[in-house]
Design a protein around this nucleic acid. Structure first.
Lengths: 156, 156
DNA sequence: GCGAACTCGTTTCAGATGATACGAACTCCG
DNA sequence: CGGAGTTCGTATCATCTGAAACGAGTTCGC
């Protein structure tokens, strides 16, 4: 009774979007739990901390672009971080609507504490893969993302 | 000001869990919109249809295992499909708690209609990749998923 | 047999998500 | 100036998600 589907060439196990989703959920769930349990950070919050550690002094709009998250998500994550005094907001010098976000000393300290853990998780995940395989994987993921974006744009 | 982060070796852009999540969201979003708009199916519903087309006559517990989804998600997806008469439930011959799900003729027809679209999306996404690259990608995704599962189990 | 412990599936509830609407501030022109 | 149109960020709402509680059915041990 499964013969028909096999002829059709569509099996869920081999379907790339499915495989991608399952793998991503497994990894995200693992990481999310780790950050939540140990530092009380959500993934959006962690992303902001990470980007602000790389380049401080960004507006929320810039953070939206850098993190590929919704502006509502960024807004809420920023509020949470501000409440915990991990980021500071200062008025934008030239635009009264906008605020400039940067890590506080406390925020920087937290980032310094989490970063090794984050890298350890990544290392554990890719253990057993060669550096070439990892590089290729990242390149392929980028391609998929770009292709999806283009297709979404065409349909819209 | 970004020097410190670069020394630390942690940049969001190159962080694999981030890349994986972004790529997966882009692809899932695209697919979800397509199924929703054209057939009124959610992704969980589509997964059930797909698995039931491969192997009909499964219980929800078996579907949970095959689709890597929560039992609550499967329950709701099954209800939705039943309301639209795309799947039929019959009592399990040996277990009164359990029901056996199978596609109706209508469900099979819908599957036959969607499958080509699903394959076309996959083909569009991987256009530009060689078959070897696609095979490797799937293998690597499987490895990541397995590694994440193992790490989650260890921590629990 | 018969009660304790377990499993299947549903319901309920709290938290997260993103589309939409909105207020405030800015830009552009006439 | 001053009003139309745009952009930044927030608030609201409808939806989705999974953890936990639950009722019904089954299995096991005595």
């Amino acid at each position: 009774m499964s013969a028909a589907a096999k002829e059709a060439g569509l099996q869920l196990d081999g379907y790339l979007p499915y495989r991608l989703s399952v793998a991503s959920n497994a990894v995200s769930g693992l990481i999310a739990r780790a950050y939540q349990d140990r530092f009380g950070l959500t993934i959006p919050q962690w992303r902001l901390v990470c980007v602000l550690a790389e380049d401080g002094g960004l507006t929320q709009g810039q953070l939206v672009a850098r993190t590929v998250m919704d502006k509502v998500t960024v807004s809420r994550a920023a509020q949470g971080l501000q409440k915990r005094a991990l980021v500071a907001r200062s008025d934008h010098h030239a635009d009264g609507r906008s605020h400039v976000l940067a890590l506080t000393d406390e925020g920087r300290a937290l980032h310094a504490e989490i970063a090794p853990l984050a890298l350890a998780y990544e290392a554990a995940l890719i253990s057993g893969l060669s550096p070439e395989e990892v590089a290729l994987l990242k390149r392929l993921l980028g391609r998929l993302q770009a292709a999806a974006g283009q297709l979404a744009g065409e349909t819209a």
